[in-house]
Design a binder for these strands. Structure first.
Lengths: 214, 214
DNA sequence: GTTCAATCTGACCATAAGGTCAGGAAAAGA
DNA sequence: TCTTTTCCTGACCTTATGGTCAGATTGAAC
């Protein structure tokens, strides 16, 4: 066998294995935590879902809490990235509209992450309290200032920016967190068209509600 | 001692004890289930919170699941009752407005119940699936018909009634389920004035969003 | 007062869970 | 090839949990 020395620029087999297994475990953990909550989830179940022995999980993640923390941080980062959509336009209808689109897309692509976040916050945010007090608070205040500027310019009606943000979070995440209820009432999972319609309705009602569109 | 025979119309001491203890246990259970989810909650913790020995809980509720089911049913019944607010007026702004008011009031008075419901639905509604498929679906379809009538009469814009209902549920329950996040961003629990403002904002934005108010 | 059923509870049990660890397999480097 | 480091895992330990039960206590009926 020709054992050529590996390219140092490319990740070594070791780090490949590590990254692959961590991703595998995180994906399984997200699903199990979303389905059962932190207390109801078991390391054994996550291990089975990842196709790894339980002891191997503890090799990569020391404790159940470490694993849980990583899952929560993941979804938070995804949302933070999507939040930049709001800065893509100076027009409130376009900026807020893009943010709603992005949040709805995430609700569809990462429903489990959204549920884990909901679970975490509902239970007093024991793990991500500092995120709420720093990153999220800063981001929120920044957006509030931006919305207030739009109000001052007369581009939207004088609503309370804070509550508009809450409404956006609530409505978009509802389609992930309460997806089961919605699917039941819908007599089946939402189709592409259903998601399109849901997104349009949320956008239209909220944007019209704040006077960003006629 | 003069042991006068009790009035048969009034509940006996026995049933009094039973009702009082069941209520005590249910209140403690609602709190613990909301704080820890079904899996994270322990009968011991509920017992401690109720001030009763654990074995006494099992005297009134055979299993943890029985207790949990009762808690979930409670909040559902409270919501169903509030849903009647929507039928108090033939005017969409008043009817839907009253429903939003009622839902917001419940979010404030029963945040734990709302969280337990959220928990239950997020985890696939193992306990109340039949409620979703019967009572909730029927109620929803009834309201959709009512909203469609308003649309046909030109009293509100042609939005998708189903998604309007989802938005109402999402926004109102958000103030209960994500109350901790909101309180953190608010730097403290919401005051009376905060709740008043939140309710007004939700009502205004949604009602204007559907064209029920100018 | 006696009887009977309802209420209460400390002690106990079986199970399952998170976590540990010794030692084996596999990759990386020399 | 040899050594070292990383990766892997079956077996095991401790703790905590849901649930049980025998027997004590209390309220109701006569």
């Amino acid at each position: 066998m020709n054992e050529s020395p590996r390219d140092p620029a490319r990740p070594s087999r070791r780090t490949e294995i590590r990254q692959a297994n961590e991703a595998l475990i995180l994906a399984a953990a997200e699903k199990v935590f979303a389905e059962a909550g932190f207390g109801g989830a078991t390391m054994q179940l996550i291990a089975d879902m990842a196709g790894l022995p339980k002891a191997n999980l503890h090799y990569y993640f020391a404790t159940k809490e470490d694993l849980y923390r990583r899952v929560v941080q993941n979804i938070f980062e995804i949302w933070l990235e999507a939040a930049e959509a709001m800065d893509t336009s100076d027009d409130p209808a376009l900026g807020i509209g893009a943010y709603i689109e992005a949040k709805m897309a995430i609700s569809r692509s990462h429903p489990d992450g959204s549920k884990v976040w909901a679970y975490e916050v509902m239970h007093g945010a024991p793990v991500i309290q500092d995120y709420l007090e720093t990153t999220l608070r800063d981001w929120t205040n920044g957006r509030i200032a931006r919305i207030e500027a739009w109000i001052a310019e007369g581009r939207i009606r004088p609503i309370a920016p804070r509550h508009l943000l809450y409404m956006i979070w609530a409505t978009t995440q509802h389609y992930a967190d309460f997806g089961h209820q919605i699917a039941t009432l819908n007599r089946g999972p939402l189709s592409d068209a259903d998601w399109r319609q849901a997104t349009d309705e949320v956008k239209t009602i909220l944007l019209r509600g704040i006077g960003a569109i006629p």
